[in-house]
Design a protein around this nucleic acid. Structure first.
Length: 295
DNA sequence: AGGATTATTTCACCGTAACC
DNA sequence: GGTTACGGTGAAATAATCCT
């Protein structure tokens, strides 16, 4: 899985004037349940356009089953993660952009009234903005054109993409005239995921240590049962699975980039028992550590 | 590789508070 | 008063981990 870590949280984009980034994400040999989009969040919006295969994205605690033709809009700050739903190859396009992309250079009352609340996160749209099987429609068209522009990269494509994004938001605002206020109950999961972010970051940095569910639950002031329940609701996976995924990812990197022995690698990623490490690795990656190194 | 030991996840069921 | 989200318990089912 290739997902740029740079997109974590408060990423700076290359161009200040056009803060966006696109990438086509392919997961060719996939097993159902495999993670195809790293769990992360950032202040930017993210458009996810399903191109091939089936995946389930968990965005702000809610699962979204997607097939080609589905388009999701991850709100600013929204925690998101994606898993393969079948063994079929998966392909999706992700367009990450900052709300400032939607700003207007001149003072514009209409803009301030219609778009600013969405761009700044005071109001939000539903996540699933276009569904497969639906007739084209302007919303889908904006997204598809923006992608075309990105892929064509003709002169000034940044500006056309920006225009399509503004257009997209304008159509969305028209389609959802009574937007969900950010503090509305319908948008409430934000509060729920907010509390987990420090913990997720903690795991990012300490997956090489022993992390018990009890400790983790304490960090977010929940009893272990509720912690498990909420964590699963939020991420679609259990906490242990989440931690192990980090470990296996790092292990794969170490196998590839270093000459450390399997035992040493197991040790480094927080699996004291190399026997168990191999078992885990095989389950997550489909091959044993030594096979993975051989390739 | 298999089995023993721990840890976790989930279940059924209950209470509270906020909101309509 | 019904509904929804959030919290909690003990116990049982499952899964992780460790130990030959």
């Amino acid at each position: 899985m290739t997902y740029p870590r740079e997109l974590w949280e408060n990423t700076q984009f290359h161009g200040e004037e056009y803060p966006f980034y696109c990438f086509r994400n392919r997961a060719a040999p996939v097993r159902a349940g495999q993670q195809v989009l790293w769990m992360h969040w950032h202040v930017h919006f993210e458009l996810i356009v399903m191109l091939k295969g089936e995946a389930v994205f968990h965005i702000e605690s809610r699962p979204y089953d997607t097939k080609p033709g589905d388009i999701l809009l991850v709100p600013s700050g929204g925690l998101h993660v994606g898993y393969a739903a079948t063994d079929e190859p998966i392909e999706f396009f992700a367009l990450v952009f900052n709300g400032s992309m939607l700003e207007s250079s001149a003072h514009d009352r209409l803009h301030a009234r219609l778009l600013a609340p969405y761009a700044t996160g005071q109001a939000r749209f539903p996540v699933h903005i276009a569904k497969r099987g639906e007739a084209g429609g302007p919303i889908r068209e904006c997204v598809e054109r923006a992608i075309e522009e990105f892929e064509g990269r003709q002169r000034g494509y940044e500006l056309t993409i920006k225009s399509y994004l503004i257009l997209l938001f304008a159509y969305l605002a028209r389609q959802h005239p009574s937007p969900l206020a950010a503090d509305d109950s319908a948008a409430a999961p934000v509060r729920g995921t907010e509390r987990f972010k420090p913990l997720l970051r903690y795991v990012e940095e300490h997956y090489d240590e022993r992390i018990s569910v009890e400790d983790a639950a304490r960090q977010v002031n929940l009893n272990p049962y509720h912690f498990c329940k909420l964590f699963k609701k939020m991420t679609g996976r259990t906490f242990v699975d989440y931690v192990n995924r980090h470990r296996m990812n790092e292990a794969e990197r170490l196998l590839r980039d270093t000459d450390l022995s399997i035992t040493e690698i197991a040790e480094r990623v927080g699996c004291g028992n190399s026997n168990y490490f191999t078992k885990l690795f095989k389950r997550h990656m489909g091959t044993t550590p030594s096979q993975a190194r051989g390739r």
